[in-house]
Amino acid sequence: MKITLNIWRQANASSKGAMQKYDLDDVSEDMSFLEMLDLLNENLNEKGEDPVAFDSDCREGICGTCSLMINGEAHGPEVTTTCQLHMRSFKDGDTITVEPWRAEPFPVLKDLIVDRSAFDRIIQSGGYISVNTGSAPEANNLPVEKAKADRAFDVATCIGCGACVAACPNGSASLFLGAKITHLGELPQGQPERESRVVDMVAQHDHEGFGGCTNIGECTAACPKGIPLDVISQLNKDLRTAMLHGR
């Protein structure tokens, strides 16, 4: 099939970017979206034009590296990651607009690549359980109710891709934040630091320049791992509790 691409090109963080049009023939339905871009890059390389820079690594939907806004939807029209999106989701003759994640805390580095280190700093601010190597008790001394373990697992599957931020009209990272708060808060091991964790992580989130959540729900619709909105409710509840305890 034939595809027309409208792609954001930007040389580096400090330069101004613009959309640019490319035509691509010989796209097959079985290609992944990124393989389609690989093909475009082969063509560009041949013509002596700078290939389009985009992020990807595992190409199987788990590392969270890939990150494209495709026709106005984070990771494109299916509920999956960009790398797992296939060209059969498009039609012959389609025009596809491809943009980087847009959020002030995610500055564009080049073309479609953004800097998501803000997420790492949110984790640094408290997204862990403080346990030094070697000091752990026997694993089965701490039974965890299956329902809780399952819930913790479900939300721990967040891949840190940033699609929630990209999709949120407020540029909020509440879904990402809530997922970590819920994962650790659901487990007995996570209790001792529960209140300081939520206060510190929210403060870091705000400090990075992410917007506040107004419960719009675009984030969860874009999330390739289906992280549900309850994590934001949980986040709010945990912060409220910490507030009542004067933190």
Partner: peptide, 11 residues
């Protein structure tokens, strides 16, 4: 070690 860190293994 992993359980203490909060790794949600199947139970």
């Amino acid at each position: 070690q992993c359980v203490a860190q909060g790794v949600p293994f199947a139970r």
